[in-house]
């Protein structure tokens, strides 16, 4: 470790940097927190909205989650849309992560351990597909999905999230497999195990930490994917949470409390995952590839 002891003014400077970082990260969450529990009148239209929570109540959360009835009007519809979108996001992110893991890990094993025709081309295709901007593919995909008649269903979102996440899974796991010595697999093969058996029963159990990290990274991506969810859905039936929350923004009739409660709920799963599995995420990010 390259850490040297700090004394005197460098130490003061160091602490200032650290404190600024903490403030920069946490202050926005504090603001969202206040907004989610404070009635509209303390915030809306005020040059200095309340900086501390007032008349704290969790009505916003209860309303958004459908635990209490919201008076008729835009708020009611918004709360309903949000609940449905949360469900849609879970479905889309769950299936995408699952398929991305299967396809990606298989491809990664082939790239890492096997010689086969077209290997280099496969690698470049996968790397290249990950680097394409989503919008470049939007028009043809839109046409394709329309022809297939699957617009406004989960399918286009699951297909596209699987495709993008799979590329990360492949690249990160390929690196990960390369770091594991193939000695154990060779030994298993001598004992009569098939190649696939050696992969399945010997290598995979050793690669669990890597698999956890790609699983988290895939889930976080699919949970937050916005562009395709925006373009390929047109009703509540498949719209995901980020799209619905972005739609709330334009509707001034919606109480800030509802918007902020929705934000807190949408942000909670990624925040918890980041805090609980910090190590896995960081190792995945720094080893195999860099997410944008």
């Amino acid at each position: 470790m390259g850490s040297l002891e700090l004394r005197g003014w460098p130490k003061v400077l160091h602490r200032i940097v650290i404190i600024l970082v903490i403030i920069a990260v946490l202050l926005p969450f504090y603001w969202i927190g206040i907004m989610s529990v404070t009635p509209q009148r303390y915030i809306a239209g005020r040059p200095i909205p309340s900086m501390v929570p007032r008349e704290v109540s969790f009505r916003g959360f209860a309303a958004v989650l459908g635990l209490i009835e919201v008076e008729a009007g835009p708020g009611r519809r918004a709360a309903m849309m949000f609940r449905r979108s949360l469900f849609n996001s879970v479905v889309v992110a769950g299936f995408s992560t699952f398929f991305a893991l299967i396809f990606g890990v298989l491809a990664a094993y082939a790239l890492s351990r096997l010689k086969f025709p077209g290997k280099k081309a496969s690698y470049i295709f996968i790397l290249g597909s990950r680097l394409l901007a989503q919008i470049t593919l939007a028009v043809p995909l839109f046409t394709m999905f329309r022809t297939l008649g699957i617009l406004d269903t989960y399918l286009p979102l699951i297909i596209m999230n699987t495709s993008f996440c799979m590329a990360w899974v492949t690249l990160i796991m390929d690196n990960y497999f390369d770091m594991i010595d193939s000695e154990m697999e060779d030994a298993a093969r001598v004992d009569g195990c098939t190649r696939f058996g050696a992969f399945w029963r010997v290598l995979l159990p050793m690669a669990v930490p890597g698999i956890i990290s790609v699983m988290l990274i895939s889930f976080l991506f699919a949970w937050g994917e916005f562009l395709y969810a925006l373009l390929f859905t047109s009703s509540m039936s498949a719209r995901t949470m980020p799209v619905v929350l972005s739609m709330f923004l334009g509707q001034y009739a919606i109480e800030y409390r509802l918007l902020a409660s929705g934000l807190v709920l949408g942000v909670l799963p990624p925040v918890l995952l980041a805090l609980l599995f910090q190590r896995f995420i960081i190792s995945g990010l720094t080893q195999g590839g860099i997410k944008g």
Binding site: V21, V25, F226, V271, L273, L275
Partner: peptide
């Protein structure tokens, strides 16, 4: 602090 700075990254860009 290392965990903290990962939080903004983990949040969906749209949010």
């Amino acid at each position: 602090v290392r965990s903290l700075i990962l939080i903004p990254w983990a949040i969906p860009t749209a949010l």
